[in-house]
């Protein structure tokens, strides 16, 4: 099997990753949330899918600014029409 993966820090997801509706309907498993309300990760899957044909370097180019620039993350999220939970 060939796949691309993003490993995200659990604390980062819970505390910093903005909640939103997931474009692909894949929710974080309950076990990942330790009793907190369900959150979804809308951008990660979309970025993975778009970048998968261009290699891991392209994925990094897509993700790295999102990790370091929350403003840009929000702009992308708005432009893609994600709704708040």
């Amino acid at each position: 099997m060939s796949n691309y993966s993003v490993f995200l820090n659990r604390t980062y997801i819970l505390n910093e990753w903005p909640p939103g509706r997931n474009l692909y309907g894949a929710f974080l498993p309950d076990t990942a949330l330790a009793g907190m309300p369900k959150r979804v990760v809308p951008i990660a899957f979309q970025q993975l899918k778009h970048a998968s044909g261009r290699g891991v370097d392209a994925i990094a180019e897509s993700f790295h600014p999102l990790m370091t620039d929350p403003l840009r993350f929000r702009e992308i999220k708005r432009s893609q029409g994600h709704e708040q939970c």
Binding site: M1, S2, N3, Y4, S5, V6, F7, L8, N9, Y12, G55, V56, D57, I59, A60, F63, H64, M67
Partner: peptide, 16 residues
Amino acid sequence: RRCLQTGKLILDRFQA
């Protein structure tokens, strides 16, 4: 495998 890692995430391409 090809991995890129920052402080908050790891990007990985894995092929077996």
